[in-house]
Design a protein around this nucleic acid. Sequence first.
DNA 1: CACTATCCATAGGCTCTACCTATGACGCTG
DNA 2: CAGCGTCATAGGTAGAGCCTATGGATAGTG
Lengths: 309, 309
Amino acid sequence: MTLQQLQYFLAAVEHGTFSGAAAALYMAQPSLSEQIRRLESELGVALFVRAGRRLVLTEAGRALRPEAERTLAAAARAAASVAEVRELTGGTATIGTFGEAPNWLIGNVVATFRRRHPGVRVRVIGLNSSEVADEVREGRIEAGLVVLPIDDAGLDVRPVMTSELLYASADEERLRAPIAVERLAEVPLILYDARWGSDDPTRRALLERAQLAGVRLEPAIEVEELGSALDLAARGLGDTVISQVTTVRRGALPSALGLVPFAEPLYETFAFISRRDAQLSPATRELVALAEQQLATLAERSGGAVSLH
Amino acid sequence: MTLQQLQYFLAAVEHGTFSGAAAALYMAQPSLSEQIRRLESELGVALFVRAGRRLVLTEAGRALRPEAERTLAAAARAAASVAEVRELTGGTATIGTFGEAPNWLIGNVVATFRRRHPGVRVRVIGLNSSEVADEVREGRIEAGLVVLPIDDAGLDVRPVMTSELLYASADEERLRAPIAVERLAEVPLILYDARWGSDDPTRRALLERAQLAGVRLEPAIEVEELGSALDLAARGLGDTVISQVTTVRRGALPSALGLVPFAEPLYETFAFISRRDAQLSPATRELVALAEQQLATLAERSGGAVSLH
DNA sequence: CACTATCCATAGGCTCTACCTATGACGCTG
DNA sequence: CAGCGTCATAGGTAGAGCCTATGGATAGTG
């Protein structure tokens, strides 16, 4: 049984003749007749009574008719659902981001996207950078925004922005000058998940620096979210590290906190990643483009402290 | 888009590889790959990301999957609904009968049929014989039981039984001997619809006889149903005519009524009709066969007064 | 690091399908 | 009875669907 045969069958039912149905479908009558015959022989029953001048449905034909209509409708819906993805009027745009990104990046981006494409659902998956890279590699997420370095096997990596990593403290004493990495070991450190999850690139960079300096870093407090870490730091319970770009948004940084760069500056490089050789769906491509614009806006507001690639 | 392509697509989704899916479908891998490629090109999107070792659905593929499943399920239902008709586990059996038939024929037949084939719906259309013939000719009813003669153009007519037409009266005086048709004009006549509807063959036979005898028949009372006519006749309000076979069933005839044949006997011939060259659906064939058995039973009980063909 | 197994894509070839045109048979209709 | 419209049949063509054989890429393995 083929969709074509069902279509021909329905056309014949509606027109009452094979010739008329064939003409309506811009084809020759014997071609349509043949498909009907094939369908009948596969189903093992006659669908029409050939009544000389007129076609009449058999009991089997009457039973088939509504089911054939349902089947063709389902097929049309299948094609339409794919077209929606193609036409950006349906489907889902998916992007993975490292843990702290949603707060300062995603709000505007998602709002703009939904305004332009109301039919498209949006999924933002917050993980750490290496997990995002894995998910993209496995195809479960189409694209991601990560902090370099990551394992780039099988991935297209497109760096977009570099932002300096800053030291944040409520203690003015420690903000006088750029801070040496050795001093991090001497103060209570507050770190949040994305900054301390396994394989986090910034964590690795910090630990490496500390090792070279001969000290060992142990966080005094670990919390889940960047916001909580800033809150605790503002109350003087410890100090934390934060990316320059994060601080650009108005109100992101509690007023009690001050910032200072590292003596030997640390930088984070952000990059968009996607599967190598796999082109993005229009929805996700659009979402990535919007995220890129948002990054540009932030870089501009930072007055040059954050630089685009 | 074909059902086959959707089937291959789903197999590939489930197995995660084209080779595995092809093996499960007992076919070569390039054949399946080609169909997937064809489907993708028709839909204008990639459905899979070819990830070296592993296949991963794209956003479009994810959108297609549930719709493809629905479409294949609908197609399976379509085939099943036709199979039900073929296998006598679904569909509808339809038979047309002349007006008074349902009372003495259909009860048992339908009960037996439903007991044997609970899934099959039954429609018994009560019309007069010539209307039944028309409906069968037009294909709206598959088969019918009629009283001959009818216009048999385009029909297969299979006579099954002959039954004598009897005169029924509550007046013993008129039951002494076979009644001459002339006397019908002298007594109040009670006729029921099916015996007096336009084109009813028995009516025509009666009128013809009367014309030849030089009298004119006018019913004193006309009612809708045979039962009503018998009731009125039993009260002595007039006489009526009734087919021998109708009287066989216990309790069908009020005890006040007596029967007598016509001086020049009148016979009704019953016949099954169906479209010429159109084979019956199994359900209707079965229904007709049961009706035939029922007629045989009635003929037997009549003790020979009703004869089978 | 080479080796192997696995998987997809490509190429060439075969068979059957789907379609066409031309024509015949049948039934309806003026 | 002739003419028209319908479906069926016959014969031919392009392409669909499938096969086997083979090459290239990738992940696991000694």
